[in-house]
Amino acid sequence: MRRVAQPATLGWAPNELPAYRSSAKRAPQAAAIALPSHLMPSQGPRWGPEKLRAGAGDLTTQVPGGTAQGQRILVHGRVSDAAGRPEAHALIEIWQANAAGRYWHPADQHVAPLDPYFLGAGQVLTDAQGCYEFLSIEPGAYPWGNHPNGWRPKHIHLSLFGAGFAARLVTQLYFPGDPLLPLDPIFMGIPQAARRARLVAKFDLLHSPPEWALAYRFDVVLRGHAATPLDAH
């Protein structure tokens, strides 16, 4: 049996996306080749808590002497496989711009202030139920050179390792009601509105730590079957 997992079949964005200029010289032109499923590794790499830097789940207090500027937010959710079973102990890596829309990265020369107390990177593991949370600040939007006066909507980058090799995911979390969303070629690259909606976090006042932070819920479904017993190889 062959797996059929082309981006189009999954409802994901095609690699070649004319509105996203950087894809023109980078998207492969030949279709990916499907292999019989037994030739792909069933499982992917795993990490324990020792992988995490201390305090990596709180992006607001990573620099001694101060705290990050901006609207404090708690992002939480559940990571599951396609059957709804928890992706337990999944490593999630996080990176984002600061409240003014600038990354702590030498390649980012946007004329917006750097925040000396916000480096914009974090890590968490999901628990046995597949649940995670991290504390951060709401990122700002920022201009990019893709098209005239193009701005990226506010977003947080997430990288996840599920149990299966096919469960590897790098994606972006967006915020509800952002007027830049329908103008963004990367978000709009996903053809169907229902699939795009999966990348928009839900405002979650009930989960907000009172008088401390707003909360957003962002659930993730990874490919594959986290709880299926796997072969030794």
């Binding site: 994901w12 990354y103 990265h105 980012d108 994606t171």
Partner: peptide, 14 residues
């Protein structure tokens, strides 16, 4: 079966 969350580009600042 639930549809998997779509991927997005890793971008320049990973």
């Amino acid at each position: 079966m639930r549809r998997p969350t779509p991927a997005q580009t890793v971008g320049p600042y990973f």
